[in-house]
């Protein structure tokens, strides 16, 4: 079944674009036909996270305004031939696209693709309204911080009142060392506050920054974040994947440091 998924958060800087890029790439790795759309008009970013910034000729506003055919604005990914990107416009004003136009676009795309993934801008203004207009499902990205969780709660309310019922959350940038010290809310704490399903948690991993630097999404690589994003993607397709017990991993690691300190001592 085809789905239009909006990746949203309310607050900026929690990792919407990174999550969008990784979900899109992850779904393509699972042999799904995917199109990613950057809906942040004026602040184009998904292209550079995907490493496709040099290939963009036409963008979202061009499609909506009829300056090009839809096919011309679909930029094919470097590695996955079943993954495409529609970049957002850099210069045009934010009101260049309306929610009705976005709905028409996603309705057209869903005929041809298994998944349409929309990267939503921060905030709850028109950019948000555009991004959710055609969505059948939402992934809410949050971090274990008071501001991000408060905004996520507001976004959940707005999505529900707009009739989007399938809501899942990703808790990003988990610092396991801080959770263990009691200085950061745990996954359970966040789940206790926000009333929606958890689809995955992603540790705050240096490798995410490195992969973004290189313009290659981390999903599927042999890193903690890469595995976490892969599992999230699998869960999106309906596959049941057990949650990684981060604490267990830490315990395992501790055992090793324990051995070393014994040897050292």
């Amino acid at each position: 079944m085809s789905e239009v998924i909006v990746v949203t958060s309310g607050k900026g800087g929690v990792g919407k674009t990174t999550t969008s890029a990784n979900i899109g790439t992850g779904l393509a790795k699972l042999q799904k036909k995917v199109v990613l759309i950057d809906t942040d008009i004026g602040l184009r970013n998904l292209d550079v996270v995907m490493g496709l910034e040099n290939r963009i000729v036409y963008n979202l506003v061009d499609v909506v305004e009829g300056n090009c055919r839809l096919k011309q604005a679909l930029i094919r990914d470097k590695e996955h031939s079943n993954l495409y990107l529609i970049a957002s416009a850099q210069t045009k004003d934010k009101t260049a696209v309306s929610p009705e136009q976005m709905k028409k676009l996603t309705d057209e795309l869903i005929e041809e693709f298994d998944y349409v993934v929309l990267d939503c801008p921060a905030g709850i203004e028109q950019g948000f309204q555009n991004a959710i207009a055609g969505a059948t499902r939402a992934i809410i990205v949050t971090t274990p911080e008071v501001s991000a969780i408060r905004d996520a709660d507001r976004i959940i309310g707005l999505l529900e009142s707009n009739g989007i019922k399938k809501l899942d959350m990703v808790i990003n940038k988990m610092r396991l060392d801080m959770v263990r010290r009691g200085e950061m809310m745990s996954i359970e704490d966040v789940m206790d506050i926000l009333p929606i399903n958890l689809i995955g948690a992603v540790p705050d991993d240096d490798q995410v920054v490195i992969s973004t630097n290189q313009g290659e999404p981390i999903v599927g690589t042999d890193t903690l974040a890469g595995q976490a994003f892969l599992h999230i993607t699998q869960r999106i397709t309906g596959e049941e994947v057990p949650f990684i017990d981060f604490n267990k991993r830490v315990g395992f690691f501790k055992k090793f440091t324990g051995i070393f300190s014994k040897i050292g001592g």
């Binding site: 008071v146 408060r150 709660d153 010290r181 009691g182 200085e183 809310m185 704490d189 206790d192 506050i193």
Partner: peptide, 21 residues
């Protein structure tokens, strides 16, 4: 233990979010 900032954050958020809802 009560003063761990993770717990403080959770309790503050609960009060705030529930009244906002």
């Amino acid at each position: 233990r009560k003063l761990y900032s993770g717990n403080v954050a959770k309790e503050r958020l609960k009060l705030l979010i529930y009244s906002e809802r």
